[in-house]
Design a protein around this nucleic acid. Structure first.
Length: 239
DNA sequence: GCGACAG
DNA sequence: ATCTTGTCGC
């Protein structure tokens, strides 16, 4: 077979992308299959600048949340932003950043949905299946589903339902702040996902791993963009 | 047909 | 996500 069809899975049409999601969604594991105890957690996120996408990954020790190392990867913007197809736009850069880490995270905390997705394959689940690693989705807003406002206290939760299915939990990670939406990514169950997110909170609305990855990706995009430098990432590298 | 719509 | 100033609260 030609390696192009295998490695560049994101270079597809919107219809093909949705079809691939339906297929990969069947491979998502919603049961707890993680190393015990969790020693290394990595936060991942992406930012845009100058027509490129900056994927970032930050690895931290558990339970201290001390940073071990971080990495950034740059890729050109190829797939457009289409609600429900975010992973086809951001995952290539994020996977490349993950690959350059020298440590192997036990689990990934992703900025975005896990199975709280129309076809049950948000970016967290997609990356989990592709990399065969446990993942948790932690989004700042909902893509689908309905919920109630959780009590205004740290750790309070409220279920998120979509089509009669429990797809996520609204979680209050900080008093007086809007909740975040935690969902199963891959190889974890919902209770564990919520617990991990809470154990990663250090005063901010976003759990530390995600907050740091968000910050790193933004700084990388910003600094590269205003140096008049518009990096031309190699197009032949596979994430 | 109309509105909603992760980042 | 990104474009952008000041402002309210802990």
């Amino acid at each position: 077979m030609s390696d192009g069809s295998v490695t560049e899975w994101w270079r597809v049409s919107v219809a093909e992308a949705m079809e691939l999601q339906r297929r990969l969604a069947q491979q998502v594991c919603q049961e707890l299959r993680v190393p015990v105890p969790i020693t290394i957690v990595a936060g991942i996120d992406a930012a845009y600048g100058g027509g490129n996408i900056y994927g970032a990954a930050v690895a931290l020790w558990m339970p201290s949340l001390e940073v071990i190392e971080s990495a950034v990867a740059v890729r050109p913007e190829e797939f457009p932003y289409v609600p429900g197809l975010l992973s086809f736009r951001e995952a290539p850069a994020i996977l490349m950043a993950l690959r350059s880490l020298h440590v192997r995270p036990d689990i990934l905390l992703c900025d975005g949905q896990g199975i709280a997705h129309p076809r049950r394959l948000g970016i967290a689940s997609h990356i989990g299946v592709l990399a065969n690693i446990p993942t948790v989705g932690c989004a700042k807003s909902l893509l689908c589903g309905t919920t109630e406002e959780p009590p205004n206290a740290f750790g309070a939760t409220a279920p998120v339902w979509d089509q009669e299915e429990l797809v996520a939990m609204a979680v209050r990670t900080r008093r007086n702040a809007k909740p975040v939406y935690v969902s199963v990514g891959h190889r974890v169950d919902l209770p564990f996902a919520v617990d991990l997110v809470l154990r990663c909170c250090r005063g901010s609305r976003l759990p530390e791993p995600v907050r740091l990855a968000d910050s790193l990706s933004k700084h990388a995009a910003r600094s590269a963009t205003m140096d008049g430098v518009t990096p031309s990432p190699a197009t032949d590298k596979t994430p």
